[in-house]
């Protein structure tokens, strides 16, 4: 499994660059990850979504799909598309240091 350096920290990632080790993530790293994909500033709203993703993953062992973030997390789909433009499900997962979501819906 590849190891890469993000924000001065060594982290494990998969071939596409998604982090693979839940515990290597921290908030500083998230800011750097966000910058990597063009989100220069994480607002309060971004953090609420990211924290939901992290908590949900720790409970279910799976990265929540966009629909789950909206129905269980209570974040409207439209909002998610604004916060994480174009590819919200993948972008959220990337910043939250989680694997790419696999669900179809």
């Amino acid at each position: 499994m590849p190891v890469t350096t993000i924000g001065g920290k060594e982290v494990h990632v998969d071939d596409e660059g998604f982090m693979t080790n839940y515990d290597e993530w921290d908030e500083e790293l998230a800011k750097q990850l966000a910058k990597n994909i063009g989100i220069d500033e994480l607002t309060e709203e971004h953090w609420r979504v990211i924290k939901f993703l992290r908590e949900d993953f720790s409970e279910t062992g799976e990265t929540p799909t966009l629909r789950r973030v909206s129905t269980v997390g209570g974040f409207p789909t439209k909002e998610l598309f604004k916060l994480f433009p174009k590819k919200p499900a993948k972008k959220m997962a990337y910043i939250a240091g989680l694997p790419k979501p696999h669900g179809c819906v």
Partner: peptide, 12 residues
């Protein structure tokens, strides 16, 4: 450990 060539996912 192998150094990743593409460390940032390609979101197109």
């Amino acid at each position: 450990p192998e150094q990743a060539t593409a460390v940032v996912p390609d979101f197109g």
